[in-house]
Design a protein around this nucleic acid. Structure first.
Lengths: 132, 132
DNA sequence: ATCGCACACGTTATAGCATAACGCAATTGA
DNA sequence: TCAATTGCGTTATGCTATAACGTGTGCGAT
């Protein structure tokens, strides 16, 4: 599950995401990689699929975008549920983990015998700077 | 913020969602309402926008779909954060609330001075019946 | 060695989700 | 009466995501 060496396309996509200062849509990534030979959305989506699997990139469901994981080097999957705060003004994303939240959600799923595969926690709003 | 009388289109859309036994996409709703004169996506999206505002319908960000609120009559906005467990096999949705989770997330946002507007919690996986 | 398999890749086409922009009609309240 | 608001209908368009096909490459098993 930890990340093997990235292929060329995967490395290109990851690089774009790491250098970006906020989440990017797949099509934005595509545009940024046209100079590197990217022509079609699938090239981006296929790379993203792997990067998500390796845990080095996260998908933000509520805005259909992707961000590099905030913990370079580590495998984010081992941190429990990942939560995001997304500023709707400047689009900065803060990533955090809260074990108590994980615990409460796991309690609930256990009590319902629900087998959780993937959990999304996203808070949209305004960051401190933008709320001023 | 509590729901005023629904317009014709809003009532039609709400009715479809209430009678469905799972979440529906906007285009599925559209198809179900063609016999009632619906022709275009916007008719659905505009109704949904209001129903979401009134708190009688929820949007599931991770599957681009909509469900009627599980608390008929009440205004769901007053229950704190709404969380969903979505079965990826039978697509049943369970809606629940956990004040401790709300509390932890609010603590975090306060500590970061982040002004939360809308929070999404969605757990995808398998319900008890489908996990068997 | 070569066969079969898994995987990454490229391309074209298509499916699925969402909104912009225009105009019309009904309601309301100054 | 006039202006503002809200809902509605239509056309067109844009954004997001995947299906289906084929190619090439590496690699282990027979």
């Amino acid at each position: 599950m930890s990340a093997p060496a990235l292929t060329k396309n995967q490395a290109l996509v990851f690089d774009v995401l790491e250098k970006a200062d906020g989440p990017l849509s797949a099509y934005t990534i595509l545009d940024k990689l046209r100079d590197h030979g990217f022509r079609a959305p699938l090239q981006v989506y296929r790379a993203l699929e792997k990067l998500l699997e390796y845990g080095v990139v996260h998908r933000l469901e509520s805005i259909n975008s992707f961000v590099a994981c905030a913990h370079p080097g580590e495998n984010c999957h081992s941190h429990g549920i990942v939560a995001f705060a997304i500023c709707e003004s400047c689009s900065q994303v803060m990533e955090f983990h809260d074990h108590e939240v994980d615990h409460r959600l796991m309690d609930w799923t256990k009590s319902k015998k629900f087998k959780a595969e993937k959990t999304t926690i996203e808070i949209r709003g305004l960051c401190e700077a933008c709320a001023a």
